[in-house]
Design a protein around this nucleic acid. Structure first.
Length: 503
RNA sequence: GUCCCGUUCGUCUAGCCAGGUCAGGACACCGGGUUUUCAUCCCGGCAACAGGGGUUCGAAUCCCCUACGGGACGCCA
């Protein structure tokens, strides 16, 4: 009898919920359900600098919106908790101690600077950058002394000096990677928190995970994981590395080139079951090749071996077509009405708009034309109004800078947005009044409408981001885009004036 | 740069594992029909096995090489 199937998704709460997370969750869930197993949701928040509670809440909500349910998780206690890695710090520390005692891990006192130099030196010698073992042979006395002296240190994984690691990927067969390619991975950071690699292996084992189904970006660090299982004397789970969702240019799906936030699809008026259905046809086809299927239908016949391995391009056009078919064929007209009301045609949303619209209303019939842009995915743009007072190429640059600045906003409210614009005007040596008409047009597509800052707040980050994107595309199509070279120098200037970019 | 993974119409893919149907379907696009417009719907069309070498009577399918694409190379996950 084989072990019960337990899969997991392990999102890191460091940003907006990503469609890639949903993509992996979907197949983990389908596989678990098909095999009468369970799917666990574990929050990987070992990065104390970047993890936020807000992001965790948002991820859970987004997945629930999509109809993805897990059997155990931070909000659904099972027998293997806690399900948040920050609450498992002691467990991880104990396991690191075990490795230390067995001689499979060692403290390292090297400074960030030294490592940086080492890396660039190796790169220039065309070697694979990896730790050189500088602290590998320190004596226990020396280690104790340096720790007692308060020197900052990390714990590293010892890696065999020769031979190769061989593991089986359920989809790709045998994968062999030479140990000399594998870095002496940091297992414990100087803040005492474990890194992904350690926490992930320990937790997967302790949570009885039978199948690790994750993105192919992890293939090259799998040897580290395999090694950890071996050092601990544990059986490895079955690995299956799924292809990564791609941008139209084939690079890994990123928000700069595509809407990647689950929230975007919600705000833009897509049905959750459609997004899920669409993700299900990325890299997978049902045996009868039908294109419209529910999560249950996908699950019933799910066979992970049917996954195709080429990274699929996320194509908005086909998603739109699918959503249209659902509206026409899968829902009754009553349901469409209800779903639309749930979406935005409700009093909650109206109440947000009314304070700003009221001064501009003479009759109810003014409302829809005035506020229509708040319900749109993105408005139609006009050449004349978009280019207006600035040189067109300057408009592109301004929008681009704004796009970068927008990613720095911590909490989405009017005040932050206002500050951002004021800062932008100041840095660009322009009056606020001068730069606002451009953005007014980009965001609303209108000449007369609601106040800009409030509109931006109501629209939310995802819809604002796509409008900037569309405006940039539009300007490019009109011949006023930013060249690759121009973008590079703009970015350089930007860093100088505004500080580093955040992606 | 090094290592790893991948490669069927522009896009998502079926077929590949167990070689042998004009390489099938869907999106997009183009044309036609239905429709007072548009859309929907229906019909038709366009369009691919990355390249080279093997194995074989026969290769999209098995093997090798090359090219191209992607990923990884963090005290991020």
């Amino acid at each position: 009898m084989t072990l019960p199937v337990r899969t997991r998704i392990a999102p890191s709460p460091t940003g907006a919920p990503h469609v890639g997370t949903a993509y992996m969750a979907l197949f983990n869930l389908a596989f678990a359900r098909k095999n009468e197993g369970k799917m666990i949701l574990r929050i990987e928040d070992t990065d104390q600098c970047r993890s936020t509670h807000g992001s965790e809440v948002a991820i859970l909500e987004s997945l629930k919106w999509l109809g993805i349910e897990w059997d155990e998780g931070p909000d659904k206690i099972g027998d293997f908790g806690p399900y948040r890695q920050s609450e498992r710090k002691e467990i991880h520390a104990n396991h690191i101690q075990i490795l230390r005692e067995k001689g499979h891990a060692y403290p390292c006192f090297c400074t960030a600077n030294r490592l940086k130099e080492l890396r660039s030196e190796q790169m220039s010698k065309k070697e694979t950058p990896r730790y050189d073992g500088h602290c590998l042979n320190l004596t226990e006395e020396e280690i104790e002394k340096r720790i007692n002296d308060g020197e900052s240190f990390v714990i590293r994984l010892k890696v065999p000096t020769e031979g190769e690691c061989c593991f089986t990927d359920e989809l790709r067969g045998e994968v062999k990677i030479n140990w000399n390619q594998i870095d002496h991975q940091v297992l414990q950071k100087s803040d005492g928190y474990p890194t992904y690699h350690l926490a992930n292996v320990v937790d997967d084992h302790l949570m009885n995970i039978s199948h690790v189904i994750r993105g192919e970006e992890w293939i090259s660090s799998t040897p580290k994981h395999v090694l950890l299982y071996e050092y601990f004397g544990w059986n490895t789970p079955i690995f299956a590395h799924l292809p990564l969702l791609r941008n139209p240019d084939k690079s890994k799906l990123s928000k700069r080139k595509n809407p990647t936030g689950i929230n975007y699809y919600k705000e833009a008026g897509f049905l959750p079951e459609v997004l899920l259905n669409y993700l299900g046809m990325m890299g997978y086809t049902l045996p009868d090749q039908r294109e419209i299927f529910s999560l249950e239908e996908l699950t019933q016949s799910f066979d992970i071996k049917r996954m195709s391995l080429g990274g699929p391009t996320f194509d908005l056009e086909k998603l739109k077509w699918l959503n249209g078919r659902y509206l026409r064929e899968q829902l009754t007209q009553d349901e469409v009405v209800r779903r639309m009301i749930d979406w935005k045609i409700n009093s909650g949303f109206m109440k947000k708009i009314i304070p700003h619209a009221l001064q501009r209303l003479e009759s109810f019939s003014d409302f829809i034309p005035l506020t229509g842009f708040l319900f749109q995915d993105y408005p139609k743009l006009e050449r004349t109004s978009l280019i207006g007072k600035f040189e067109a190429s300057y408009a592109s640059k301004l929008i681009k800078v704004f796009e970068w600045e927008l990613e720095k906003i911590k909490s989405w409210n009017r005040e932050e947005i206002c500050n951002l614009f004021q800062n932008l005007a100041e840095k660009e040596d322009k009056k606020l009044k001068e730069i606002l008409p451009l953005f007014f047009q980009v965001i609303t597509g209108e000449h007369v409408s609601l106040p800009l800052f409030d509109s931006i707040e109501i629209l939310g980050q995802d819809l604002v981001r796509i409008r900037l994107r569309k405006a940039l595309d539009f300007l490019t199509a009109e011949g006023f885009g930013i060249s690759k070279k121009g973008l590079k120098s703009l970015e350089k200037d930007y860093r100088l004036k505004y500080g580093d970019r955040i992606d």
